[in-house]
Amino acid sequence: MTVDEYPDADAATVEEVEPILRVRSEPGVSKPDPILTVEGVRRTFGGLVAVDIDHLEVQRGVVTALIGPNGAGKTTLFNLLSGFERADRGRWAFAGRLVSGMSADRLARQGMVRTFQLTKSLARLPVIENMLLGAPDQMGERLRIAPFRSRWRDQERDNTERAGQLLEQFNLMHMRDELAGTLSGGQRKLLEVARALMAEPRLIMLDEPMAGVNPALAQSLMQHISLLAMSGVSVVFIEHDMNVVAGISDWVVVLAEGRVIAEGPPWNVIHNDLVIDAYLGRSGRPAESTGREESS
């Protein structure tokens, strides 16, 4: 898909396309059509409160950026919501279903798929096998069916075809049969996003997808993310680069010290005084003391 295939995207007024734009810019505000609703989620590490969110909703079908200074709890929030870490308390619903406490793999099968800040490409598997792993509901992944190739061959062929299309889109087709470990850091990032898309997510959560990706590839990745939202997939991504945030997000949520301190459309939020304070440190208080340092 390219942008040109969406000639009507600009035809309607922006408000009609994006009901999110009618939402007020205030922390914890409710959205017209949330795919993810978070309620009272809290996680502490020793005495440090890493995440403490009263209420947060993520609108369906738009690109939401999650920003905040280092140690704000962005990655921890991702880990909690996607089932990779346990919350001390709190509930969250995905697509109208209460999913708090659900295991990471079940959440992924529900359509909530995430990527990682440090890429997790499967180094000793070829790129195409990395992609195929993402495909959902594979018959051949059941032990009882696995030995009988005829029972999974057709599905495998369809998945391989879809994987090829995605690789093409992400400029990885020439690496199709190479081991993923031979890819550059940026290519691994792209592979991880492409692989997550193989899983046919309803909500995709990207942890710093642009980090380490060269500017040209980052540009095309940004385009992909915008297209994803147009095709109905909801996107939440963590990002530090404000140009990227301003460029592709429809909505921005700002986290500081584990709390949502602001949210709204990018042009509203980026110049918000609270946000600037959170990034630059409050008066008389150095920025370093805002919380636990996350790996970055």
Binding site: S103, A104, A108, R114, L122, E129
Partner: peptide, 23 residues
């Protein structure tokens, strides 16, 4: 088979496998 592919993915990185819905 795809089953074997899941095994190898677990060998490489169990969290990657988990994030793609594998138990």
């Amino acid at each position: 088979s795809p089953w074997g592919r899941v095994l190898k993915s677990i060998r490489e990185d169990e969290n990657a496998a988990r994030s793609l819905g594998k138990n």
